[in-house]
Computed example of a mutant assay.
Amino acid sequence: MSKSPIQAVIFDWAGTIVDFGSFAPTSIFVEAFKREYDFDLSLDEAREPMGLGKWEHIQAVGQIPAVKARWIDRFGSAMCSDDIDCIYQTFMPLQKAKVSDHAEPIPHALEVVNSLKQQGIKIGSCSGYPRQVMDVLVASAKDYGYQPDYIVATDDLPQGGRPAAFMALKNVIELGVTDVRQCIKVDDAAPGIDEGHNAGMWTVGLLLSGNEAGLTLQQYLDADDETLAIAREKARLKLEKSRPHYLIDTIADFPQVVADIERRLAAGERP
């Protein structure tokens, strides 16, 4: 197999490589709001700012107009930093306890990643999870056979996480990549696509395996064409705002993207 002109692919975790539908973080957000403040949050509301660091995610949920209105009606003022801290402190142990339950790779993820490695492409990764959650998830994913070459958690860097380029660029440095234009960032959420753009990389959004479609693996496998078309369009409307270079259903479709980017690089194109 000839060596690829692509130096590295940087994958998100939940909804991209593991945890079909990105249920580990969203379900825990709902539970944390309920436990700490007896406040009801819908799964769709919990999904809305997915891709941010988890503290920033809680902050963003509190700014969703419907959530903010209910919060003010209930507590008399908008959510403040102390409220976010309390929910975050509840969220963290719950997430650590349950993230392993959602560590199973998405169908075809392992064979796609192993094929990339065989072509000499390095596998980077980054996540909205903080390091203490990532350490649990990484160990569980390794048991399934997934082991990227480098991993960055959202609190590893003092500059912070997405949509800024820092986590992606930390992968570039640690993997020894010499040209960001020969890298691909793959994500199921808009902040992760923005991160790839900000790092100067090719960007790929995932429509059906991730946060925006919100399907369980079984729902995806059982769905008819119309159901998938509706879910695909729902995700497309959200992700297209970040203008990814490619939109595909799941990681299973990624090899065709790699081949097309290789063709474009050979023709002198850049992200």
Rank of each mutant, 00 (worst) to 15 (best):
A199C: 11
V133S: 06
E48F: 15
Q119C: 12
F33M: 11
H108R: 06
P255H: 05
Y129E: 06
C183N: 10
S125I: 07
E212W: 03
G145I: 00
H57A: 02
A69D: 14
P5D: 03
S127G: 04
D19P: 02
K96Q: 14
A252V: 13
T203E: 02
P255C: 11
T178R: 03
S100Q: 08
P158N: 11
V257N: 09
G120V: 09
Q59E: 15
F23E: 15
V172E: 03
L239C: 03
V177S: 00
G53E: 13
E36C: 06
D85I: 13
R236F: 13
I121N: 01
K241I: 13
A46D: 01
P25L: 10
Y220H: 11
I193R: 02
Q256Y: 14
Y146S: 01
R162C: 07
D85L: 13
V30Q: 12
L215Y: 00
A8W: 03
Q159D: 09
P191W: 03
Y220C: 06
L206N: 01
S209A: 05
S81E: 15
Q219S: 11
Q119N: 14
D12V: 08
E262M: 04
T227H: 08
R263N: 11
G214K: 14
T178P: 03
Y129N: 07
L175V: 02
L215M: 14
R270Q: 08
G214Y: 05
S4P: 07
M201D: 05
I6H: 00
F20C: 14
G268A: 10
A252N: 09
M92L: 14
F39K: 08
T216I: 08
P93E: 08
S140C: 07
